[in-house]
Write a protein that binds this DNA or RNA. Structure first.
Lengths: 190, 190
DNA sequence: GCCGTGATGTCTCAATGTGACATCACGCTA
DNA sequence: TAGCGTGATGTCACATTGAGACATCACGGC
C-alpha cells in the first residue's frame, strides 16, 4: 500500500485520541490529526461527520444490540425486566473494553463539547430501547420513560465499573444499580 | 436610545425564533438573525456563546430552582421524595409557559443540533439535582442515578403536558409519570 | 495490459467564533 | 454647560470547520 495504508480510519482515530490526551480536545485541530495520520483534512471529513465524531466511532452498534435484546426477550417478561436483560447483553459486550473506555472517558470528561456529543450517543441508545419497548406493546411515552431510566441505570453502572473494573463485573454493577433504584421507589416513608 | 434599543438580547432571541420557524435552524445564518434584529454578528456573540444558545437562554434558572428545593425539602423525606417535590416546584414555574415552550420545541424537534444542546440543558439540571442530593447525604453515584431518573420523569411529564396543556396540569403529569415508573418496578412477575 | 472503481488529494468557499480596536450615547461631575 | 468615563455596539481581521467540485492515483477484474 504505497499511497495509503488500508487503515486510514483507525489511524485517524488513534492519532486523534493521542493528540486529545496530549493537549486537550480544544487545542487540537483537525489538520493536526490528519497530519499525524498522514492524511488530509478533507479525508477526515469523509470518515467522520465532524471533529467530535472521531472519538465516538464504533459506539453505533450498541443501540442495535439493546433494541434486539428487548425485542427478542421472553414475551412474559415485564417491560422493565426485558430492558434489564438487554443491559446485561450490552454489559457482556463491553466486558473487555475497560482500558479503552477509561482512556476515552478521560478525554470526554475534560471537554464540554465532547460531553455534549456523548449525551447524544446515550440518546440514540435510549431511542432504540424505546422503539423496541413500543414493539412489545408498551405505550409510547411510557416506553421513552423506561428507556431513559434504563440508560440512567447503565450509565451509573458503567461509571462504577470503570472506577474498579477488577472488583465487580459490569453486569453485576447493572443489577446493583437497578436494585438501588428499585428500593428508592419501594421504601417511601412519609 | 437612538443608536440601539435596550432590548438587544430579546430582539435577537425573537428574530432567531422567527427565522428558525420560517426556514429551519440549519438554513438560518447568524448574520441573518442579527440583520433582522438590527444588530451585528459580533454583537450576537456577546450575548450568546454560539448560535444554538439563542434558543435556550433563560433556561439557566431551572437547575438552581431544582437544587434549592431539594436542599430545603423536609429532612425527613426520602431522597426520591425530595426530588419529586422539587419537580413540583419547577412544574409550577412553567405552568404558564405552554405556548412558548411548544413553539420552541417545534424548532428543536426539527434539528439534531438543537436536540443535542437540549440534552446538555437537561444534563445541567441533572447535575444540579445530583449535587443537592449529595448535600442531603446521598452517596455520589446514587445521587446521579436518582437525578437522572428525576429528569427522565420530568421530561416525560413535560411532553405529555405539551400534548394537552388544558387537560392535565404539568404538576399532575409529573406525579402520573412518577407513579408509572414506580409501578414498573413494583410489579415484577416470575 | 487496460480500465473502472474507489480512496485520497487539491482547491475553493460559506459560516462560525473570537481577538483587538474604534465609535457612539449616556450619566456623572465640576 | 462642557468634559469625561463607561458600557454597548460596530469594524476589521483571523483561524477553524465543514462541504462541493474536480483531479489523481492504486488496486482488482477482464
Amino acid at each position: 500500500m504505497p499511497r495509503w495504508d488500508p487503515e486510514g480510519e483507525s489511524r485517524l482515530r488513534e492519532a486523534a485520541l493521542q493528540l486529545f490526551l496530549e493537549r486537550g480536545y480544544e487545542n487540537v485541530t483537525v489538520a493536526e490529526i490528519t497530519e499525524r495520520a498522514g492524511l488530509t483534512r478533507r479525508t477526515f471529513s469523509r470518515y467522520f461527520a465532524d471533529k467530535r465524531d472521531v472519538l465516538f466511532a464504533g459506539s453505533d452498534e450498541l443501540p442495535a444490540v439493546i433494541g434486539d435484546r428487548i425485542r427478542t426477550a421472553d414475551a412474559a417478561l415485564a417491560p422493565m425486566e426485558a430492558v434489564l436483560a438487554a443491559l446485561d447483553a450490552v454489559a457482556e459486550r463491553l466486558a473487555d473494553q475497560a482500558a479503552i473506555a477509561a482512556r476515552r472517558q478521560a478525554v470526554v470528561r475534560a471537554s464540554p463539547e465532547l460531553q455534549e456529543r456523548a449525551l447524544t450517543k446515550f440518546a440514540v441508545a435510549t431511542d432504540a430501547a424505546a422503539d423496541a419497548l413500543r414493539s412489545r406493546g408498551v405505550p409510547a411515552s411510557t416506553a421513552t420513560l423506561l428507556a431513559q431510566v434504563a440508560i440512567a441505570i447503565f450509565r451509573t453502572a458503567f461509571e462504577r465499573w470503570l472506577n474498579a473494573p477488577a472488583e465487580v463485573s459490569l453486569r453485576d454493577r447493572v443489577r446493583e444499580s437497578a436494585a438501588e433504584l428499585s428500593s428508592s421507589f419501594g421504601s417511601q416513608p412519609s
